[in-house]
Structure formats: structure tokens, C-alpha cells
């Protein structure tokens, strides 16, 4: 069931999502969905490139693959929390959808995870729910 939370269009346009995924087909698919839902996004192929992006741009949420060359999802998330001191939601995307993997993701600093192959409704719900809490409610509290 699709979440009933709605992010207003004018706010959606200000939201920026970073997708970190080494698989070319995976990148294409996530990009297609985010565009369809009306979000701005950047895509990169590994953790090292993600860190470079994070130093240059402000993001509201990260969709993070786990097994990647150069720097994997766990190492990248730890770096984001411990060195960059960023608190934005990081959602893991993994083929290993086990309880053990979920725990590993949480320990690395990720807030949630989604199993591959991606189910559109699941990804939409996770993305919108986290953005709603971190972006929409934060803005509402300011005014």
C-alpha cells in the first residue's frame, strides 16, 4: 500500500537525493523512478565518488548500494557519520536481504534497507517517509 504522506511539489523540487550504485542497470532503474516521482537526484558508482559529491552538494537522502568497488556501502556510511558528521537518512539497497545484513547496515549508520530487485512501492514508501520526517516536518516546525 502506498504511503498517504504527500510531499508538496514546490518542496519536492528543492529535495536532492544521492544514489550510490555500481550496477549500470540498477542506476538507470533508480534514476527512472526518482525522475518519475519528481525528485532531483545525482548518481555515482561507488562510495569514493559519493563522498566527493557530498563535499560539493547538499543532499536530503542517500540510496546506498552495499557491495561496490573502491569503497563499499558500509565503509561509506561510516565515513559519512563519523568524519563528515552528516545525519541525513541513508537507505541501503542490498541483494542480501537477511537479518544479519540489516544489523550490519544499522551499525554502519544506515537507517533502513530495501531488498533487490527493487519493488517500486517499497522504495517510494521508504523514500517519502524518510523525506517527510527529515525535510517536510523540519520545515513545518520552522514556521
Amino acid at each position: 500500500m502506498i504511503t498517504d504522506r504527500v510531499i508538496p511539489k514546490e518542496l519536492k523540487e528543492k529535495i536532492n537525493i544521492l544514489v550510490v550504485e555500481d550496477n549500470l542497470l540498477g542506476r538507470k532503474l533508480i534514476g527512472f523512478l526518482l525522475k518519475k516521482w519528481g525528485f532531483h537526484y545525482d548518481i555515482c558508482a561507488n562510495g569514493k565518488l559519493a563522498l566527493e559529491n557530498l563535499k560539493l552538494n547538499k543532499y536530503d537522502l542517500i540510496l546506498m548500494d552495499i557491495q561496490m568497488p573502491e569503497m563499499n556501502g558500509h565503509e561509506t556510511s561510516k565515513y559519512i557519520r563519523e568524519k563528515l558528521k552528516l545525519g541525513l537518512p541513508i537507505i541501503a539497497m542490498t541483494s542480501h536481504a537477511t537479518e544479519e545484513e540489516r544489523k550490519k547496515c544499522l551499525i554502519s549508520g544506515m537507517v533502513d534497507y530495501i531488498a533487490k530487485p527493487i519493488v517500486e512501492e517499497e522504495l517510494y514508501n521508504l523514500t517519502v517517509n524518510y523525506l517527510f520526517t527529515t525535510v517536510v516536518e523540519n520545515l513545518e516546525n520552522k514556521y
Partner: peptide
């Protein structure tokens, strides 16, 4: 191991899983 993992992510897109 690396390539098998990559394949694992690719095959569901066209139903080979």
C-alpha cells in the same frame, strides 16, 4: 565473487533470476 554478485543484481531485470 565480485562478478557473481554483479550478475546477481543484473539478472532479475530480464527475468533470468
Amino acid at each position: 565473487k565480485t562478478v557473481a554478485h554483479k550478475l546477481r543484481s543484473t539478472i532479475p531485470f530480464i527475468g533470468l533470476d
